[in-house]
Simulated assay, not measured.
Amino acid sequence: MARMAAFIVLLIPAIMAGAGIKFMRDTLYSKLIEPFPWLWLQFIVGIILFVIGLGFFAGFLLHRDRKKGKVAPKFQKETK
């Protein structure tokens, strides 16, 4: 059950990043999707979704690898 929950938690940002890529691609081909009134707004929303989705996924991987001790010393968290 825990693996399924982790999969769902990682699936949501992956879908967000995929939607961001789709919005940016559609902007480059001048295809305006319905909820957006302007192409530039569609592109900005695409960038935001992509960065948030990718950042969440990368942070999750970094957190997991820190727990297992598989990161370079410069990425280790400082303990006080």
Rank of each mutant, 00 (worst) to 15 (best):
K31L: 07
L32H: 10
I47G: 07
V45E: 00
L61C: 10
A17E: 00
K70Y: 04
I52G: 02
P35R: 07
H63I: 08
G55D: 15
K74W: 15
Y29Q: 12
A58N: 06
L10N: 15
A2R: 12
A17L: 13
L49H: 05
K22L: 15
H63T: 10
I12T: 11
G69W: 05
V45Q: 05
L10T: 08
V51I: 15
G53A: 12
P13L: 05
R25E: 12
L28A: 07
A72L: 05
L62N: 01
A6G: 02
D65K: 11
M1G: 14
R3Y: 09
V71K: 04
F56T: 13
I48L: 11
M16Y: 00
V9S: 09
R25Y: 14
V45S: 09
T79K: 15
A6F: 12
P13G: 08
V45D: 00
F57K: 00
A58W: 08
K22N: 03
I48N: 00
L10K: 10
I33S: 02
I48K: 01
I33K: 02
S30A: 13
D65T: 06
A72C: 01
E78D: 03
P73S: 10
L41F: 10
D65N: 06
H63L: 13
Q42A: 04
G46M: 07
I44H: 10
D65Q: 13
A14Q: 06
E34S: 15
V71R: 02
S30E: 14
F7G: 08
Q76P: 01
L10Y: 04
F43Y: 11
A72F: 11
L62W: 00
A6C: 09
G69C: 09
P73A: 08
F23M: 13
F7W: 08
G18L: 11
Q42F: 03
